[in-house]
């Protein structure tokens, strides 16, 4: 029979905690799926426009920049592909990553009520967040495909790699989000700071314009870890050689251990958070 022991020391064997965490992820597959399904169903049942809302923000941002560019208000360097494809693929990827960053904290926040009442594998919240992101992103990708074909970029074999890069982007964002969740659950400031900071971060990432040839902006943009994700994804989508593939692989390789560490941190922090926020 399964025996559980609760005491103040959390028996800090990182390895053991990780194994338990992964076991819980496995055990709660149905729960993660069900939670994601519930939220998606609820999201679309109470709305007529439904799916449209998933891409209305990136589309709007893209249109603003397409307009600024085509009207000559802003002079942008040549991107090598039709600008609408460049802008939309950028804003779309950006929206996926920012959603991924916010996903763990919003999933945890919306489960506040049950967290303080029922013991269930908390990892399911993170997983359901990822599932929801995958669903929403796949809808967006369909729109991106329309853009690609409409503007005559056409099909490239590397397009098949695009979903993997997109998934890597979600993974990257979720890892970041997972790290800030414990603090963000305690202080509302964290969530606001993230939203605020990301607005600025977008302008040092090649989302709507390319990396300049020289200057401080070039250095910042090249170091920015968001850059290789956006660029690699876009290059695969339109069939250009991926210029930042190495950096991309390094970022993702770093994310794998970081994700597990964040997962352990999340697991340790939940009881502390429940205690402080008990509804």
């Amino acid at each position: 029979m399964e025996t559980k022991v609760y005491q103040k020391e959390n028996n800090l064997h990182l390895g053991k905690l990780l194994v338990e965490s992964l076991k819980d992820i496995r055990r709660s597959r149905f729960l993660s799926f069900q939670l994601a399904k519930r939220d998606i169903q609820a999201q679309y049942r109470q709305s007529y426009l439904g799916i449209i809302w998933a891409f209305v923000t990136p589309l709007a941002t893209a249109f603003v920049w397409i307009f600024l560019n085509s009207s000559g208000t802003v002079q942008l360097t040549d991107t090598g592909i039709p600008y609408p494809v460049y802008a939309f693929s950028g804003t779309l990827l950006w929206s996926v990553i920012t959603e991924a960053i916010n996903s763990p904290i919003s999933s945890t926040n919306s489960a506040k009520g049950i967290l303080s009442k029922i013991n269930f594998p908390k990892e399911a919240l993170v997983m359901s967040g990822i599932l929801k992101l995958l669903f929403n992103s796949s809808v967006k990708v369909i729109l991106l495909l329309l853009f690609i074909f409409f503007y005559g970029v056409g099909f490239n074999w590397s397009l098949l790699l695009f979903p993997f890069v997109l998934f890597a982007g979600i993974f990257f964002g979720t890892t970041l989000g997972l790290f800030i969740t414990p603090l963000g659950m305690l202080y509302k400031d964290i969530g606001r700071m993230i939203t605020f900071g990301l607005q600025f971060l977008m302008y040092v990432t090649p989302v709507v314009y390319a990396i300049p040839k020289s200057g401080i902006m070039k250095t910042v943009m090249e170091w920015n870890p968001f850059t290789p994700i956006i660029l690699t994804a876009r290059d695969f989508a339109v069939g250009m050689p991926p210029a930042y593939l190495t950096y991309f692989l390094i970022v993702i390789a770093c994310c794998i251990p970081l994700f597990f560490i964040a997962l352990i941190f999340y697991r340790i922090s939940i009881p502390i958070l429940v205690e402080r926020m008990s509804a």
Binding site: K4, Q7, E275
Partner: peptide
Amino acid sequence: GLINPDAGKVTI
């Protein structure tokens, strides 16, 4: 198991 004790032990 929702919150951890500050002292003592529970075995279930």
